[in-house]
């Protein structure tokens, strides 16, 4: 059982690492959002693994997964809203061209 839990958690850690890489290295807003989704996916994998191997009778953990799914959807909605407006007014969603936000 211990081995299985460690396998799942390591998979999630690798996915999280890839997500961090994507969020930091991409220049496009939508690609950055994809990195964040990947990190949230890894977090959900962790939560389900903790539920299955540590507390199968506690359903707050499954509830927490639902909340993370909501957060994923919210992140997508708000991100696309901002991206649409940014594209409308500036014609690009590249973050390297977003220095004008600090003015």
């Amino acid at each position: 059982m211990m081995t299985e839990l460690i396998i799942v958690l390591v998979i999630a850690a690798v996915l999280f690492g890839i997500g961090v890489y994507g969020a930091l290295s991409q220049t496009n807003l939508v690609m950055i959002m994809m990195g964040i989704e990947l990190m949230l996916g890894a977090a959900m994998l962790n939560l389900v693994a903790f539920w299955f191997y540590l507390h199968p009778k506690t359903f707050s953990l499954q509830m927490f997964v639902l909340v993370v799914m909501t957060v994923m959807a919210l992140e997508a909605v708000v991100g696309f809203g901002v991206a649409t407006q940014r594209f409308r007014s500036k014609g690009s969603v590249e973050v390297e061209e977003a220095a004008d936000l600090k003015e």
Binding site: A13, V14, F16, G17, I18, V20, Y21, L24, S25
Partner: peptide, 11 residues
């Protein structure tokens, strides 16, 4: 920079 940071966090 990002690959080093990603590797560090994952590791």
């Amino acid at each position: 920079y990002s690959s080093v940071f990603a590797f560090l966090s994952g590791a």
